[in-house]
């Protein structure tokens, strides 16, 4: 079952094409990350999938419907964590969560959602008094209060401290474990690596690579760099498969206390991929 199906998606602003023929498929229950530099078309693509923006061309199906024409029944099945909202609301955190919960037939209990995002101590505070990170966590709470089948997260952890980010990752994993499909856009490669089943790299409006975090851009087959010290001298070998080399070293009784085997990191792969398109 596919949750998201995109064929040949195109979108231009004032004649400048920012999405140039994207194909994408996300299965139900999958956590899928869209990576790419600023201006690559991530947010535009996401907003088209959310039904917030019209497309110029291409086929799009989200939960079986065309987001451009789908109605409020469809909207109730998706959750959106918005980027850059600044609703200067005079409502309190708990009033806002309760209010949005009222839009869904079987919402999560508001107190539980507030607790999940760690805002319980702020439940009675006006939204305008929240810090940037607390504001983002409220956005997450509002995105999941309706128990969505498909959740859109647009750079959800911007402004989080490391502890809050780990906490948030646990929350996303818990949502995914219960079957929620998640489309995540992020700048943080370690976030994509930690959460995503698959990811796509977007550069200048085109998808330049799709794969698992481990296999992206031929990363799994890119070989490995093996280093060790022999008689105090650093030795380094680039090999396709490190196993035979290490076996040899062991057989020769080499001191392997300083042995390292490194593969290209996701960041190395990512920078190579987008570098070719800048």
């Amino acid at each position: 079952m596919t949750a998201i199906e995109v064929r040949g998606l195109r979108k231009a602003y004032r004649g400048h094409e920012v999405v140039r023929g994207i194909d994408l498929e996300v299965a139900r229950g999958e956590v899928f990350a869209l990576l790419g530099p600023n201006g690559a078309g991530k947010t535009t693509t996401t907003e088209i999938l959310e039904g917030h923006r019209r497309r110029d061309g291409g086929e799009v199906r989200v939960l079986g419907a065309d987001p451009g024409t789908a109605g409020s029944e469809w909207r109730a099945r998706i959750g959106i964590v918005l980027q850059d909202t600044d609703d200067a609301a005079d409502l309190t955190v708990s009033e806002m969560v309760k209010h949005l919960a009222g839009f869904y037939p079987d919402p999560r209990p508001p107190a539980e959602v507030i607790d999940l995002v760690g805002l319980t101590p702020k439940g009675g505070s006006r939204i305008r008094t929240l810090s940037g990170g607390q504001r983002r966590r409220l956005d997450v709470a509002l995105g999941i209060v309706g128990r969505p089948e498909l959740l859109f997260l647009d750079e959800p952890t911007t402004g989080f401290d490391p502890q809050a980010r780990r906490h948030f990752w646990d929350l996303i994993r818990a949502l995914a474990a219960e079957g929620t499909t998640i489309l995540l856009t992020t700048h943080y490669l370690e976030e994509a690596e930690a959460l995503a089943d698959r990811l796509a790299v977007l550069a200048a409006g085109e998808i330049v690579a799709v794969g698992t975090p481990a296999g992206l851009g031929g990363r799994a087959s890119a070989g490995a760099k093996v280093s060790w010290r022999e008689n105090g001298v650093l030795r380094t070998e680039q090999v396709a498969d490190p196993t035979p080399l290490i076996r040899e070293l062991v057989a020769a009784d080499t001191d392997l206390s300083s042995l390292t085997v490194t593969r290209p990191t996701l960041e190395d792969t990512y920078l190579t991929l987008i570098g070719a398109h800048l």
Partner: peptide, 27 residues
């Protein structure tokens, strides 16, 4: 079917609108 199990659908439009009216009045 723990706390996270997706439960699609929507509340009746009447209660959605009533809830929004309450929010507007609170604001």
């Amino acid at each position: 079917s723990g706390v996270f199990a997706p439960a699609p659908g929507r509340a009746s439009m009447r209660s959605v609108v009533a809830s929004q009216i309450r929010m507007e009045l609170t604001l």
